[in-house]
């Protein structure tokens, strides 16, 4: 019985701090998170505030120069109406979708997948050659990408000569195709890296078994390899979409939105409206449309990946 005496509860000595409120079986809000999160919160607020401010400016008549640069006020739906009647706006949305979805999301992902698959089967020297080139292209800053592509596709450039457009220049004849190619060229290396990593999860024994059963290459790809790559396709497509939005620097430097607005995607259009035509408010309104587009793309991808994961769980 001596033991029970020793186990008796004793009040802790005064010099030892004891948090009586903290139950160890449940995690409570830790007040230390306030100072830890404070700098981040301030900076994130400085990120969010411009988005809100832009949403407001979009509904005013603010301009870069002139009387409306100082005395500007709320004008309601005026800019929305202007946008509705603006032919260039519709064209710009269309071009944005081509650039961001077709060249970025679909093009870069498909090209990355193609290179990753080719690397699986090509001779080792070729494999490292194409891998190095694709990675190098991805690492170059957008300004460099734009300058290189501007040089080789403007009149007298090597690519223009190859396709027989040496006099006018590819960049003038097929501008949207050229900037899309430049975008794809600069992004597909990243997609290739994603797919190369994902290909490691393909079960080699199943590929072997399918081969023994006499399945064709296409069939093995469709039935064995692609299912493993599906989540990566989704990740890559989302990543490439967002990166293409950021890659409008390429267009701005290569064509400045021209010729005749042929490459005037929304981010470029917004910038030109604001700083070239001095209509800051209209530029901000176009920016609001970009935010909505980004949000819509995010929601679409979120829904797709949610449905995918749900069907996967059901299959198991």
């Amino acid at each position: 019985m001596a033991n029970s005496v020793e186990l008796r509860l004793v009040a802790p000595p005064d010099d030892v701090e004891v948090d009586k409120g903290d139950r160890l079986d449940r995690i409570r809000f830790n007040w230390l998170s306030v100072p830890l999160l404070l700098p981040t919160a301030i900076l994130l607020a400085a990120f969010l505030a411009p988005i809100g401010y832009s949403a407001y400016i979009g509904f005013t008549n603010l301009s870069l120069l002139g009387p409306n640069s100082v005395n500007w006020h709320f004008t309601g739906m005026h800019n929305v109406q202007a946008m509705w009647q603006d032919d260039l706006f519709g064209k710009s949305v269309y071009l944005t979708i081509i650039f961001v979805i077709l060249s970025g999301s679909v093009g870069s992902t498909a090209m990355g997948l193609l290179i990753a698959m080719l690397m699986q089967r090509a001779a080792p020297s070729l494999r490292s050659l194409i891998g190095t080139i694709a990675v190098l292209a991805t690492t170059l800053p957008p300004t460099t990408v734009a300058v290189i592509w501007w040089t080789v596709t403007s009149n007298g450039g090597i690519f223009s000569d190859i396709v027989g457009m040496g006099n006018t220049g590819m960049l003038y004849s097929v501008p949207m195709l050229v900037v899309s190619c430049a975008n794809c060229w600069s992004l597909c290396g990243l997609a290739m890296l994603l797919f190369s990593a994902a290909l490691k999860n393909v079960p080699a024994d199943i590929v072997e078994a399918a081969k023994l059963e006499g399945a064709s290459s296409v069939r093995i790809f469709r039935m064995v390899i692609f299912p493993v790559l599906r989540p990566t396709v989704l990740t890559s497509a989302l990543l490439m979409t967002l990166l293409s939005f950021g890659n409008f620097t390429i267009i701005y430097i290569m064509t400045g939105g021209g010729p005749q607005n042929a490459t005037n995607i929304l981010p470029v259009y917004s910038y030109l409206e604001g700083f070239t035509y001095h209509r800051l408010a209209y530029g901000a309104m176009l920016g609001n449309v970009i935010v909505l587009m980004t949000a819509a793309i995010g929601i679409v991808f979120g829904t797709i990946s949610y449905l995918e994961s749900r069907s996967e769980r059901r299959a198991i």
Binding site: P50, S54, L242, G274, I290
Partner: peptide
């Protein structure tokens, strides 16, 4: 994922 281009005008 928000493109920085849209922040330019308000900032």
């Amino acid at each position: 994922g928000v493109p920085t281009s849209i922040l330019i005008i308000p900032v």
